[in-house]
Amino acid sequence: MLKVESLNSGYGKLHVLYDVSVDCDKEEIVAVVGPNGAGKTTLLNSIFGIADIYSGSVKIDGEEITKLPAHVIARKGIAYVLQMINIFSELSVEENLRISASYAKIPDIDKKLREIFEIFPILSERRKQRAGTLSGGERQMLAISIGLIRDPKILLLDEPTAGLMPLYVDLIIKKINEIRKERGISVVLVEQNVKKALEIADRAYVLVSGQIIFRGSPSDLASEKEIMRLYLGMGE
């Protein structure tokens, strides 16, 4: 589905990622974890054509998307939910969703809206409200919905639980898992909350200082005590 091969990328002269290879199969949740500043967001930015790629390739279903501009990549069945500032706070909840859907050329937007509101009923209640007035958890739900309404094959999520109350963290993680199962979407999940991410992930990558130092199943990762302790702050 998504295949990133020996990627070197960064911003201008600032080289961030070194020979990073990541892939994500159909209906799979892949977690990318690692300490702050490891380059997790840069990885997503590189996939989406926002960071500068020096070498390597990014493919979706075998189609090369390396170095395409972001707005073109957005039409390749891939949705990217940014970290933190990921909604139009001046616009209403419904306007946010409608803009996103209209640019994804969704034929029946109203039907899609109903689907989204079934997944996140709270958004239906807030549909006329200015998005800037939503609570942190509601914002994240809206942000994910903005991506979801585009009917993507792949969803890139950048720390969807950052700064949320534990209650919301559990809810969001649960929803991500449901979405994958019910709609058959592949998810690349970048997370600080390693424990939660590994609960739903099929496979995990650990990114440290711009390099992949581990790839494998969550259970294998859990047994790598050294990595868990040094880089992920888990363990004793």
Binding site: I50, P69, A79, Y80, L82, I87, E90, L91, A104, R150
Partner: peptide, 24 residues
């Protein structure tokens, strides 16, 4: 207009507009 709403989207959040497929 769609063009104008897209323009407003760019004004508010360039990065997000980009990820929605708007040619910023």
């Amino acid at each position: 207009t769609t063009l104008g709403v897209a323009l407003r989207a760019c004004m508010e959040n360039t990065a997000l507009a980009q990820t929605l497929g708007i040619n910023v």
